[in-house]
């Protein structure tokens, strides 16, 4: 970052921070970290133009900017709203935001099968985490859910539309990483589905990344399906020389066996260096890789059930009286982990 680049001062939930011009509210919140980061199901940092669709990251802008201090009339998607000088944002301190988010989570779940016990994504599913945080204890939806048949798109990837939340991330992967996008959205409304044209197979060097970006279990790795639960595997960072991609991956071990290979996900489950399909599907021997270190796993993740990292007390809420008061529910939940 250049020295002379303009910094913008904003406040999120009363916590001041400075970020470069053009940063979105979501990324500014991520720089602060902790409980005040809005959840995001469709936004993906390393894919352009993603975001704005799932509406889980809605926040209240209580002060537009120093120039125009009026609050924004509606809740705004923090992933697509850029910061302005003097902006004040309320996320977990605003009851309207929390209520809207609960509503969105409920909407996302009404057509989601809730078959986590038989879903491969369980344990590393963004929707699972989200509903644990914000979902209701019971369903108010007493109707038949929409259903689709499973489709094998190519010999390595399976699409199960029942679980899809229409984040559109996999379309952006195909648009931005591969030469030609061969899948898209068919139909509209609740009937809309991700599909290929007459079940054509997806075949491209980087198409495997759709599995990594899928926030739910709609796109899964056929070479890993039902082999194991993620929390029984041990993630290890490794690399190899690859002429197509960076070769930086995470290997998921069960005993001595490499069960699957994925990109390296950060704490927001986002991959920044996409890997090629050769690394993902064809190199499943320890001898193919140079092992670096065990992958750090957040203590809140079930993958950490028998893992390494120290438990940390909740970072932000603990120090801020105002946040403590308005987030009793969340605080008690985080306290439990201690």
């Amino acid at each position: 970052m250049a020295e002379n680049e303009k910094k913008i001062k904003i406040k999120i939930d009363g916590i001041p921070t400075e970020v470069p011009e053009g940063t979105t509210i979501l990324n500014a919140a991520r720089q602060i970290g902790g409980e005040i980061v809005p959840p995001a199901m469709c936004y993906y940092t390393s894919l352009e133009e993603t975001g704005g669709k799932c509406r889980t990251c809605l926040v209240k802008v209580s002060k537009g900017s120093d120039q125009n201090p009026k609050p924004m009339p509606k809740l705004v998607p923090s992933c697509r709203t850029t910061v302005m000088e003097g902006m004040e944002v309320e996320n977990i301190t605003n009851p309207d935001v929390l209520e809207a988010r609960k509503g969105v989570v409920e909407f996302l779940l009404i057509n989601h099968p809730l078959d986590c016990p038989v879903c491969d994504q369980a344990g590393e599913c963004d929707l699972q985490d989200l509903s644990y945080e914000h979902g209701l204890q019971e369903t108010r939806f007493n109707y038949v859910k929409r259903t689709f048949e499973r489709i094998d798109i190519g010999d390595k990837i399976q699409l199960h539309m029942n679980r899809c939340i229409m984040c559109y991330r996999c379309l952006y992967v195909a648009d931005q990483l591969t030469e030609k996008r061969e899948h898209g959205v068919l139909f509209r409304g609740v009937k809309s589905e991700i599909s290929t044209y007459i079940e054509k197979a997806l075949d491209s060097d980087f198409i495997g990344n759709v599995i990594d970006v899928c926030p739910v279990g709609a796109l899964t790795d056929r070479t890993f399906r039902f082999k194991n639960r993620v929390w029984f595997t041990k993630p290890v960072n490794a690399h190899r020389e690859c002429d197509k991609c960076s070769g930086n991956v995470t290997l998921w071990y069960k005993g001595e066996e490499v069960l699957r290979v994925t990109g390296r996900k950060d704490e927001y489950a986002e991959v920044h260096e996409f890997i090629c399909d050769t690394c993902r599907f064809d190199k499943k021997k320890t001898s193919d890789w140079v092992i670096e270190s065990p992958k750090k796993v957040q203590h809140t993740s079930v993958i950490a059930s028998n893992h390494y990292e120290e438990l940390k007390p909740p970072s932000v809420i603990k120090e801020n009286k105002k946040l403590q008061e308005s987030n009793k529910e969340q605080l008690s939940r985080s306290e439990r982990y201690k």
Partner: peptide, 15 residues
């Protein structure tokens, strides 16, 4: 007629 892009409209109108 919902396009199905954002979740509140797609699922809410259906519900």
């Amino acid at each position: 007629e919902s396009c199905g892009q954002c979740s509140p409209c797609r699922e809410g109108t259906f519900w």
